[in-house]
């Protein structure tokens, strides 16, 4: 069952058509999925406190219902090391349309994967796993399965990727934590079976995976047209 918080997030996003990043992270955290520590500074006066809570270095991204592709408008900064740099970034993006503050979160490292979901017309909810990052549509190295996923589905998805060796360890790079990835995919698939009717698609890109575990660095939830208010 959807929690009260999740319902509120969906209802609040009906006008925009998609869920803003801080709300998406909140929703995934509520579902038990691993998200970085984060805060939403709606005013410049909140920057100091949020930064102190999370600790430098930080990543920051613009929050605006009009900006879906944040890096296209220089709306993303990583490796921020001081309150001055953070304030400067706030200042820089505050002129973007429908500016609603900045999303601040801890920095994370790992192999960039994409985990996605879509409500397919013929088959209903489906889950995608692939090599992620900004080049995701160039490499198109993805495995797709109908949800809900089983453990066997997940094993075969990992094997199906051309870049499977990047996950299992290659030339001195440690393997990613496969248990953590499975856990993410199973939880994500479970959540999808609940929210499937409300979504058009979801991107967790990148999902950062290392030997230690996985972290959803960026999340985008597009709502189903039937949910939108005209």
């Amino acid at each position: 069952m959807l929690s009260k918080l999740m319902k509120e997030i969906f209802l609040a996003s009906r006008k925009t058509g998609w869920i803003l990043e801080p709300d998406a992270k909140l929703l995934f955290r509520e579902a038990g999925l691993p998200v970085p520590r984060f805060g939403w500074a709606k005013q410049a006066s909140q920057l100091q406190e949020i930064a102190a809570e999370i600790g430098f270095p930080l990543a920051a991204k613009v929050v605006s219902p009009s900006v879906i592709h944040k890096s296209d408008v220089q709306g993303v900064a990583v490796g921020i090391n001081s309150i001055e740099e953070l304030s400067a970034f706030y200042e820089q993006v505050s002129s973007l349309p429908d500016f609603a503050g900045i999303h601040i979160e801890e920095m994370a490292e790992g192999l960039e994967l994409i985990v996605g979901a879509k409500t397919d017309y013929q088959f209903g909810p489906i889950v995608l796993l692939g090599i992620g990052g900004t080049g995701v549509e160039i490499y198109q190295d993805v495995a797709i399965r109908m949800a809900p996923l089983t453990g066997k589905d997940i094993d075969s998805m990992v094997r199906e990727l051309k870049g499977t060796k990047l996950l299992t360890g290659y030339r001195g790079n440690k393997a990613i934590n496969m248990e953590a990835l499975s856990e993410v995919l199973l939880l994500f698939s479970e959540l999808l079976m609940e929210i499937g009717p409300y979504i058009e698609s979801i991107d967790l890109n990148p999902l950062l995976c290392s030997n230690d575990g996985c972290l959803i660095a960026d999340a985008r939830i597009m709502l189903d047209a039937s949910l939108l208010t005209s």
Partner: peptide, 23 residues
């Protein structure tokens, strides 16, 4: 028009073919 990577990568046929193999 698709606004997410997943919607773009998981086109109708890609899904069809993958789901068939899955089953």
């Amino acid at each position: 028009a698709v606004s997410s990577h997943t919607a773009s990568l998981a086109g109708d046929y890609q899904v069809f073919s993958s789901v068939l193999a899955q089953h």
